[in-house]
Amino acid sequence: MNLKELYQEIILEHGKNPRNLGKTENFNKEAKGNNPLCGDNVHVYLKLNDQRKVEDISFEGSGCAISMASASIMTDLIKGKSDNEAKEIIEDFLGMIKENPELKNNILKEDDKTKLMCLSGVKQYPMRVKCATLSWHTLVSAMENDGKEITTES
């Protein structure tokens, strides 16, 4: 166990000053997620344009440093990607948090991958994995636009 690995500089910084916080204008997809165990909640908004590119993405919500940082980094990295690219990144991230030692996608630049890898500290804290993944599951739901509320209990 290592708190320093969990609370890396980048996480604390994003946690304190989350990017893309708020409700983006003209969003056309959205979903809510919540973690009933701890009361964390997140609302993801995105604007997917005609070329199926994520033109804008933002989130609202409250939660711990890990969940806020995760949502912040996620929105930063997904912005400007096509929906297929976004899906690949999401899958890769969730796979990494679950079991893979590294990220495998070829879409993100190395320094962006490094940012994401900062969240890998939660692997040692099973109770905190949900904090890191809630916004990502919520993004999937928003993209599929099935309006289903995500709970980390399911």
Partner: peptide, 19 residues
């Protein structure tokens, strides 16, 4: 956030609840 408090306290054996 309370969760972060709970995780950090846990590291030194202090068990509290957050949520």
């Amino acid at each position: 956030h309370p969760h972060d408090i709970a995780t950090i306290l846990d590291e030194t054996g202090v068990a509290i609840r957050a949520g």
